[in-house]
Design a protein around this nucleic acid. Structure first.
Lengths: 225, 225
DNA sequence: TTTAAAATAATAGTATTACTATCATAAATA
DNA sequence: TATTTATGATAGTAATACTATTATTTTAAA
């Protein structure tokens, strides 16, 4: 017996719910592995089809194109982080403690978690860190935004901004700080791995902990000190 | 009579220096306009060639591919911001004042400037804000980094981090803060335009000034208060 | 001013990508 | 068992991202 988590996402993100069939779950699973391995640009539906022993046509029955597949994965991740935050802060009253848990979730949504069989949360985190922003840096943002394709990120920002406001009701930039904590977390981890001169976070060691400490320090200074 | 600025960039970024010929400058000029108009994904050398009345083959003599062209433009922008910072802080002693000027340069490297004939700095700023991160979020980062293709960004981070350290010598994250100020500036402007629920910056009005005020506030809190 | 060198244009061609369409077969369900 | 539904196999198209070749124009040197 096990607890099953199914994350529901905006129906416009897919043609057919991939989480409800074996092939669909296989698409999710192997697209995560392959995007992480080859990068988004070099990832194609053709390669994915070969990998999972299916065909391009079959994959196109689930996702309109690889951009929407990425958007699906990124949304899944945002929802996942939201879920982690909700469950882990549920019984916590102190908003400062809550924000610490949020920051911990941002930097390590991968570790310690039960997880979903067909999602490698750790690799999905890498993808979000390395490719996530490509999901909303396109000429279709406005159209896609009106369809609610970024709802999960907005929810996340909303959740975090509320905690920020709880800590300091006079702070004027709760949403900007919320998104910046998330973006900065991803960015600085990415920099530590690939462009170390752009960050103070050291590679190879426990950069996760360092980023966490840094974000906590920033938040302390901005909201409390 | 006029002052001419020529920004020299890493020679690996291009096959033939585009700033030294009419066609090259045309490539720069119209690629900026077209990437801004259509977005990076939909921009192609074919379309650019038609636009400037040249051919794909001719453009390929200047740039290996469109990714390297983007990297060229983004590097140009980084150098340009660096140049603005240098000239505008030259006679300033107070490091806090210097950082204010730096922040001003980040948010509005477009306005008030003399500029270069074949570069629309304002649109280039939009491109950096919307597409800039794509220049280093690829599977080739490490290889390209070893070739020095991100030198200009590192220089910028170095310059800014020094000022940060001048303000507060005990601050432990000068590089992370430097890059974050830059990234946050671009991000929050982009959010204000396209995903307003993710930011506190209001659209349409003078979002530039708002972002500037926010970053100044953050810096004040983090380094001084 | 002629001549050679260099830059650009014109044209063609290839492999890959991002799809769409059709039909056959297998699996699930009524 | 019949029938809908999902998947597989196969084919095909238009666009993209190049490379190669040859012709023509521009520039610079002799």
């Amino acid at each position: 017996m096990s607890i099953e988590i199914k994350i529901s996402l905006n129906e416009g993100l897919f043609i057919k719910e991939p989480q409800d069939s074996k092939l669909g779950r296989n698409i999710i699973k192997h697209s995560i592995l392959m995007i992480d391995e080859f990068g988004f640009e070099r990832f194609t539906f053709k390669k994915l089809a070969v990998e999972i022993g299916s065909t391009e046509a079959s994959i196109y029955r689930y996702f309109e194109n690889k951009h929407l597949l990425l958007l699906f994965l990124v949304n899944w991740y945002w929802e996942w982080v939201n879920y982690l935050i909700k469950t882990n802060t549920m019984n916590i009253d102190d908003p400062k403690k809550k924000l610490q848990i949020i920051i911990h979730s941002f930097v390590s949504a991968s570790k310690d978690n039960p997880g979903v069989a067909y999602v490698n949360e750790s690799k999905l985190h890498s993808i979000v860190s390395a490719e996530g922003m490509k999901a909303y840096h396109t000429k279709e943002v406005d159209k896609e935004n009106s369809k609610g394709f970024f709802k999960s990120y907005k929810n996340l920002a909303e959740t975090v901004s509320k905690v920020i406001t709880e800590i300091n009701p006079t702070f004027r930039y709760p949403f900007s700080l919320a998104t910046n904590l998330f973006e900065m977390s991803n960015n600085q981890i990415y920099f530590a791995h690939h462009l170390p001169k752009l960050t103070d976070i050291s590679k190879d060691e426990n950069e996760i902990d360092e980023v966490e400490a840094m974000l906590n320090y920033f938040v302390e200074k901005l909201l409390v000190a």
